[in-house]
């Protein structure tokens, strides 16, 4: 049992601490009227990228789905039709869905992706009234056709896909420290004090 004086001191220190806090500056940001700037590699809403020629980068390999610790990604592959080639391989994602309610935004999908197709943008405002609307499918994940980046891997005549090893090699050239440029629907986002806005 502590001494009476010790008890009083303990009480004093406790009450002083709380009182002192009452007069400190509050760190709270008045979102949404005030928006804080994100870290450059903030993990927000996903997007599926394209190549500069408009072809989807995603080859439907499902590596993101298996890398996902939250089982949030569903991919079902399909074969490219010769007259309607969606991606540079034989295979493309016939179905690509991310359940953003399950997603923990860890970015493992991005790291697992061999073609830099799935990336996490800094966008995080996804609130909605219906659960179903959090399942993002290809129509909402894919950037617009003219928003592709990077040259696609070579294709041989007749649409025979090139070796995907080329793409994997490109992957290793991404500057990990800088990360990806923040984009939204393919447009580059610029940094501003009040959050990231479209450039």
């Amino acid at each position: 049992m502590q001494s009476f004086g010790g008890a009083v001191m303990a009480l004093y220190r406790g009450f002083a601490t709380t009182l002192q806090f009452a007069f400190q500056k509050k760190p709270t940001v008045q979102y949404p009227s005030v928006r804080k700037q994100h870290a450059p590699r903030f993990h927000g809403l996903h997007e599926l990228r394209r190549y500069a020629d408009g072809k989807e980068r995603c080859i439907g390999c499902e590596l993101c789905a298996i890398a996902c610790p939250a089982n949030a990604i569903t991919v079902i592959g399909a074969e490219n039709a010769p007259d309607d080639r969606r991606s540079p391989g034989e295979r493309f994602a016939g179905r690509y869905e991310i359940d953003e309610l399950r997603c923990i935004f860890c970015g493992l999908c991005e790291e697992a992706c061999p073609t830099d197709a799935i990336v996490l943008t800094p966008r995080f405002e996804m609130a909605d009234y219906r659960r179903g609307s959090f399942i993002y499918s290809k129509d909402r994940l894919l950037v617009p056709p003219d928003a592709g980046v990077g040259a696609p891997p070579d294709e041989r005549p007749g649409g025979i896909p090139a070796d995907l090893g080329w793409v994997t090699e490109q992957k290793s050239t991404v500057d990990i420290a800088r990360g990806y440029d923040a984009t939204y629907n393919g447009a580059k986002l610029k940094d501003e004090h009040k959050g990231l806005t479209l450039q």
Binding site: I59, C61, L63, G89, E90, R91, L164, G165, T168
Partner: peptide, 11 residues
């Protein structure tokens, strides 16, 4: 051998 394991059914 092509390094296309991501799209290969045997992968």
């Amino acid at each position: 051998h092509p390094l296309d394991c991501p799209i290969c059914d045997k992968g």
